[in-house]
Computed example of a mutant assay.
Amino acid sequence: MQTNSSLNEIPLDDIEVLLISTTQAVITARAVSELAKSETKLIFSDTTGEPICETVSYLPNNRSAALLRKQFEWDENRKAMLWTWVVNAKIGMQIVVLERRKLETEALRYEAGKLEINDVTNREAVVARKYFPLLFETGFERRDFNPYNAALNYGYSLLLSLVNRTIVAAGSLTQLGIHHDNDENQFNLGSDLMEPFRPIIDWWVSEQEIKEMNPELKIGLVELFNLELKFNGKNTILRNAVKTHVGNCLKYLNGDSEEVHIEVELGDEISSHAINGHV
């Protein structure tokens, strides 16, 4: 990596995700090729600094026709059960986030109690409509154009890329989801499996006083993936918890396990590393 003042070398094995956050950066075809071979996610931003696209390697080392056939034939009952666990874990994390912010959780607990197999009544969406105005402010909507939504979108894009990288590295396709089923979404499966960890992005963003998107805020969101936590009872960091979670889900869908545990325990690290007043 070369700038006007320095030349820095970083081993490819040390890079999981490379975010190009300016349209003024130049990257060679050779670099893109080598990053793809090392299964590194390469994310490009638009003129506003918002992530707009990412690379997907055609040839992960362990993708096979047999593995793809298995994915196309995933059992419908397993997909329904996994989506139920994912939604339950996501709502549980949203409740934890509200508790950390000392906010009311009764409405979310009520909706969580109505969750059914495969979330046929769409409790996930119902909870989201109640959750975000509680976490940020009355009248807050995810579709609004404001700095907080910009930060959320940025964090979600990074999370999705990490999930997608793990899916591809395992030899599976990101297009075939268990719940999301949009022909225009190349990352349906990633959009499904990332859900339990999205509230961690929400928590971090809600702790900041954001006036505009800037480099410090973006760096903070990138560094969030080194957050220390417990996942299924084991001490780890967020990025490793996400990879473990995706691996567990794929094993279950492929019939190699009979259950998926999704238990996240948060510490207090976000509060002590908040960057209020600087973003």
Rank of each mutant, 00 (worst) to 15 (best):
F225V: 03
I201H: 02
H245R: 05
L217K: 02
L152W: 02
D183M: 14
N8L: 10
V120H: 11
E228S: 11
E258I: 12
Y110T: 13
R100G: 13
V126T: 12
I270Q: 04
E141Q: 14
R100S: 09
R69A: 13
F225K: 03
T138R: 10
A107K: 15
I15P: 03
N122C: 07
I201K: 01
K211P: 04
N226F: 07
L193F: 05
I117F: 10
D202G: 08
I200F: 03
L217M: 07
E212H: 12
E223H: 09
M194H: 01
V205R: 01
E50Y: 10
K251R: 15
T84P: 08
L103F: 03
V97Y: 01
I95E: 00
W74D: 06
Q2S: 15
T138D: 14
L108H: 04
D13G: 11
E34S: 10
N276Y: 15
L227K: 05
Q24E: 12
K218M: 08
V87A: 01
N122L: 06
L253G: 00
R100C: 08
T55R: 01
L227T: 01
R30F: 15
V222K: 13
N61A: 13
R129Q: 11
Y148A: 06
F44N: 06
G220P: 00
L266M: 11
K243C: 05
P133I: 05
P60C: 04
E216Q: 12
V246Q: 01
L176P: 04
Q186C: 13
A170T: 10
T47D: 15
D268Q: 09
K234W: 05
E207S: 11
N276A: 14
V205M: 07
K90L: 11
D14V: 08
P51L: 02
N118W: 00
